[in-house]
């Protein structure tokens, strides 16, 4: 093996990896393996798992439906205030989730900006499962937009122009040329968004509360159980860690393979 970097980088790099791996190891060391099946099949755990599965599916779909158009517009349409929109769309990445949750409450809650509208329609969003989905989509959307927009910009418009001269309209070009070319970025962006939605805690708690079976997702259940039954919390945490790692491995493995294919193609 050739060493393509200064050797001393190994030290901080190992410490960095340790910073991430040690807490995971700590978690695993506390897993009550014997009671694990009972703990993760308790009523409250199952309710939380089922709710998380449902809400993450819904919020990931929402991110797909809203994020793809947003990324395409930001990458392809030159409009005034584009930089501002791009900056604001990325705000959930840097905001503390609790702040995001407050914002959601004051936008869609009963006394929020759109509260009157929703009340007239007979819908109350705050502290409902819908609120969980909105909170997850809020924090997850930037991950898809960021990844997809960068890929669209890097890819350029050459193939879209060719498609247009071949008679393909904008929709056909978008679906058959543009999105096919940025497919790896779309998939990895979506998977990371799903992982972020799965781990969402602060915005959910603030905007949706913690009602078993309705708004208490796995992270909220873990936080709650931590006070009552630490073993149950650790067991659920293990499930969350495994699912998240699987998802991230899928995303990065997939996009790395796709990137390799693209490189081979170019060579």
């Amino acid at each position: 093996m050739t060493f393509g970097a200064p050797r001393w980088l190994l030290v901080p790099a190992a410490i960095g990896a340790g910073l991430i791996l040690l807490p995971l190891a700590g978690l695993v060391s506390r897993v009550p393996w014997a009671e694990l099946p009972t703990l993760i099949t308790s009523d409250s755990a199952l309710a939380a798992l089922a709710l998380s599965a449902r809400t993450v599916t819904a919020s990931t779909l929402l991110v797909l439906v809203l994020g793809v158009p947003l990324a395409v517009l930001l990458a392809r349409v030159d409009f005034r205030g584009r930089t501002l929109v791009r900056t604001l769309v990325l705000a959930p990445l840097v905001l503390p989730p609790v702040v995001g949750g407050l914002g959601l409450l004051y936008a869609f809650g009963k006394r929020g900006l759109l509260g009157g509208t929703f009340e007239a329609l007979g819908v109350d969003i705050a502290f409902s499962t819908t609120a969980v989905v909105l909170a997850q989509a809020f924090v997850a959307l930037p991950f898809l937009v960021l990844s997809l927009e960068a890929a669209l910009r890097a890819d350029g418009t050459r193939h879209e122009e060719v498609a247009a001269t071949l008679g393909a309209g904008p929709w056909f070009t978008l679906t058959h040329v543009t999105l096919r070319r940025v497919w790896p970025a779309l998939v990895s962006g979506l998977v990371v968004a799903a992982a972020r939605a799965l781990g969402e805690f602060g915005a959910t708690l603030t905007f949706a509360g913690s009602l078993e079976g309705v708004t208490r997702t796995v992270p909220l259940e873990i936080y709650l159980q931590r006070e009552i039954d630490a073993d149950a919390a650790v067991a659920l945490a293990l499930v969350l860690v495994l699912v998240s790692l699987a998802v991230v491995a899928l995303a990065y493995g997939g996009s790395a393979r796709a990137a390799r294919r693209v490189t081979e193609r170019a060579a």
Binding site: H159, V162, A164, T165, P170, T173, R180, R181, W183
Partner: peptide
């Protein structure tokens, strides 16, 4: 008329085939 509605087409030095 946008390019896709024009009954003509353009071939350039870069074939730009659709990969995949």
């Amino acid at each position: 008329l946008p390019p896709h509605r024009r009954p003509l087409t353009l071939l350039t030095q870069d074939p730009a085939l659709f990969a995949g």
